[in-house]
Design a protein around this nucleic acid. Structure first.
Lengths: 224, 224
DNA sequence: ATATGGCATCTGGTATACCAGATGCCAATG
DNA sequence: CATTGGCATCTGGTATACCAGATGCCATAT
């Protein structure tokens, strides 16, 4: 029995992983640009060993491409990448809904409504809206009680946010999406799997359309 | 233009990853047992740096648990783990079917039937049967043309195989599952999404029942 | 002018030395 | 006898030196 919290030590690899991923998602690092272990480790103030671990995680999650003895680059994306991510999101967020609904109770419904209110507060602030929209989807995944599913959706929403930051930079707003959440919540409150599923699919499809148009239309630094 | 094949160099980390994962799946390493970086690196004949990369990949994929400065252990599993893996398998293999069917042609159907014949050849050899059954499911994932989905199903079927090796060790055979493939193939050949989906779900449910019983029934080294 | 060979210098990959937290034994102390 | 403090020795984490493949420049040869 241990009372003094064995707080997890902050490992350099985790810190590096978060920092680099954030920089990629927020487009502080452009897709296609090279990363160099030596200069990165220097700017992060750590050695190459924990940095390599961070980079490998990013590679396994599909953010960067590492070619042995040649170099590491931030991945560029094309329409197929967008399609793949959205196909997976749809199937797995629907799964989360199906698992979640039989588990709902007053407490969890309350949590969901609270999360949605937070979202509403930031409907005019695109950056924060992106953040809280993800939180909303992640909350549903968490309440599905399938931890592997949560991890998967987490990864997919991160990738989605990457696309989305590009849309924001390009001046496109996706804020009207907020109102689609209302339909999802109504479906959840009435434990209606079909209504909720449809609302989720509409919600995701709507986002996909916006992103797909952005990717298709022109040369932009995300595509190769 | 490069004609001389730029064959990917064999990296030590990949070799170590494959070897350790194989040992875990085939239960040469028992769940719950500890792994030590120094002795592992020695027995693999590599240093700790590439080994750490291999171990981290195994951790990210859920095979092992690493506690900073304390140790690394092979994960034990419980009924919830089994449920999680099978929930994900069902949703995502159904997705693969839905994506695959509109893409089918003579060539791909031929591939699928060939794979099934190979499977039939090993219906009496449980070890090889496990291998070719996975190949069959992976082929369907591959033909869905969603690479992320392929990777996901690959990971899930590997975890499934881990369960399955335990079933084989416990003397339970799951070979009758072969005949369920026939129904899947018929559905595919007639491009019938509903029939194929149902066959896949039955197929996976059948396997889940066998594994769940094994986990539930008794103390065995997989559970904690 | 062009093709080529070799070297300087990039890159990531690997091995290893060292650091710090965790643990358990055991002697010193009450 | 029970408790405690400290040290020996485990563990993984980190920093760093070195190795080898990849690349491009430039001198040289044709």
């Amino acid at each position: 029995m241990t009372f003094l919290k064995a707080e997890q030590p902050q490992l350099f690899k985790d810190h590096a992983y978060k920092e680099i991923k954030k920089a990629i998602i927020q487009h502080q690092i452009e897709p296609g640009s090279m990363l160099y272990e030596r200069s990165l480790s220097e700017s992060l103030g750590i050695s190459r060993t924990p940095l390599k671990l961070a980079l490998q995680q990013l590679e396994l999650e599909g953010w960067i491409l590492s070619v042995p003895r040649k170099g590491i680059s931030v991945k560029t994306i094309n329409k197929q990448d967008v399609d793949e991510v959205f196909q997976l999101r749809k199937a797995n967020e629907v799964l989360a809904i199906e698992l979640l609904i039989p588990l709902l109770n007053h407490e969890t419904i309350d949590k969901i409504e609270k999360a949605d209110e937070q979202l509403y507060d930031f409907r005019e602030d695109p950056l924060k809206f992106v953040y809280y929209d993800s939180s909303f989807h992640l909350l549903l995944a968490e309440l599905s009680q399938n931890h592997r599913l949560y991890q998967l959706i987490h990864n997919l929403t991160d990738q989605f946010n990457w696309f989305r930051f590009a849309a924001l930079k390009a001046g496109q707003s996706v804020d009207e999406i907020y109102y689609e959440h209302k339909l999802m919540i109504e479906g959840l409150k009435t434990r209606n799997v079909r209504q909720t599923t449809e609302a989720v699919l509409n919600h995701i499809d709507h986002a996909q359309t916006i992103i797909a148009n952005l990717i298709d239309n022109e040369e932009n630094p995300m595509t190769h």
